[in-house]
Design a protein around this nucleic acid. Structure first.
Length: 204
DNA sequence: TAGAGGATTGAT
DNA sequence: TCAATCCTCTAC
């Protein structure tokens, strides 16, 4: 496979949309790419969750809470929001929306596409199904850590490359989000979006 | 400055 | 079902 297939970047202006339009029209089926120490790794996005700043109790920016960690969410969309959970796993989100509206899209699963041997090495497994089917796993496979928080997605370290195949609404499913039992009435919002037919999901 | 808890994972 | 593990945030 040719590395040049993934050089195109999703335009900065695209990230200014509201996250629901962005995840359905652009993010699902797009390619998450990283180049760490010169090694290109690429995965096709198969699963993502929307977090709405302000109203959403599951979001770190609930109530427009602005802390050093969440500050990047308040800028215009198009940056990496990365952080540590449970003391051991990193997560990767894309910031969206215009300045002042701290919405994010959490990338939860990928289909490994390029640099698979590097991903295997970082993950310590050769099981392709276990490489990137979870938010902590895909960060480890692509070399993403909390230190990449605030990285612009228009650069050449972490970026998103556009879809290369057509995805219609029939291909997309939505379910409640995972791991947010604490979020009250927002726990059951169907804000997890998946490529229904993909075998590369964190859970079916 | 101390204490509580978490947008997960993998082994049992 | 449960423990690992440490950063972030909140309250004192």
């Amino acid at each position: 496979m040719n590395e040049k297939l993934f050089e195109r970047h999703i335009a900065a202006a695209t990230y200014q949309q509201n996250p629901f339009d962005l995840v359905r029209d652009t993010i699902l089926g797009a390619y998450l790419c990283t180049r760490m120490d010169g090694q290109l790794t690429v995965g096709k996005i198969t699963e993502a969750e929307v977090y709405i700043g302000g109203e959403d109790k599951a979001a770190h920016s609930y109530g427009f809470r602005k802390t050093p960690r969440t500050a990047i969410q308040f800028k215009e969309g198009g940056y990496a929001y990365t952080f540590l959970v449970y003391g051991m796993y990193h997560q990767f989100c894309v910031t969206t929306s215009p300045p002042g509206q701290p919405d994010t899209i959490l990338i939860r699963a990928l289909e490994p596409i390029f640099g698979i041997s590097d991903m295997c090495q970082r993950r310590g497994t050769h099981n392709i199904k276990k490489l990137t089917t979870g938010p902590g796993k895909l960060c480890q496979a692509l070399g993403i850590t909390k230190h990449h928080n605030g990285e612009p997605l228009t650069g050449n370290l972490i970026w998103l490359s556009p879809r290369q195949e057509k995805i219609t609404p029939d291909h997309i499913g939505c379910t409640p989000r995972i791991g947010i039992d604490f979020a009250g009435e927002y726990r059951d919002k169907p804000w997890r979006f998946i490529l229904k037919d993909s075998p590369y999901l964190s859970r079916p």
